[in-house]
Amino acid sequence: MKVDFKLNQKEVNVDVDENTPLLWVIRDVLDMKGTKFGCGKAACGACTVHVDGEAVRSCSFAVKFASGKSIRTIEGLSNGEDLHPVQQAWKEEIVPQCGYCQPGFMMATAALLDKIPNPTDEDIDKNIVNICRCGTYYRMRKAIHRAAELKNEAS
């Protein structure tokens, strides 16, 4: 099946089985490896992308549902030269260790900040439920608060 959608602002067109998970289309057909496979069952959040601005776990999202939608991945999180406030904050707090889960966390955080510009600790606890095995949650929480500051400063 042919599917058209926008990926990081660019029009793309793929011809794949309509039920192929969006994750694998992004990774293997469109060759963007920043979005990670962790569990394939929407349980870990490593594959989180934005679909029309909403956080979506792409391993469990059939590509046919992407038709006509705008998809954003970690590669498209920043709009150009400058890092997205979430990435900037992640850098300032030196969050990543192995780094594998981090794109998913950053995408989830970016979606959170779009909806709740100044999240409380409770908002963070409830919304950010991805899994990090290295245990970077402590720094991530600091980075999420910092990202909110950076984003508010910018706007």
Partner: peptide
């Protein structure tokens, strides 16, 4: 994962029902 109902029953800011659940059963996941 402590999934929440949110105000309209569709979940919360970055954790909507639609974050994981789409329009039909996903046979891959």
């Amino acid at each position: 994962f402590g999934v929440q109902r949110g105000e309209d029953g569709h979940g919360i800011a970055a954790l909507k029902c639609e974050t994981c659940h789409q329009k039909e059963n996903n046979l891959n996941s």
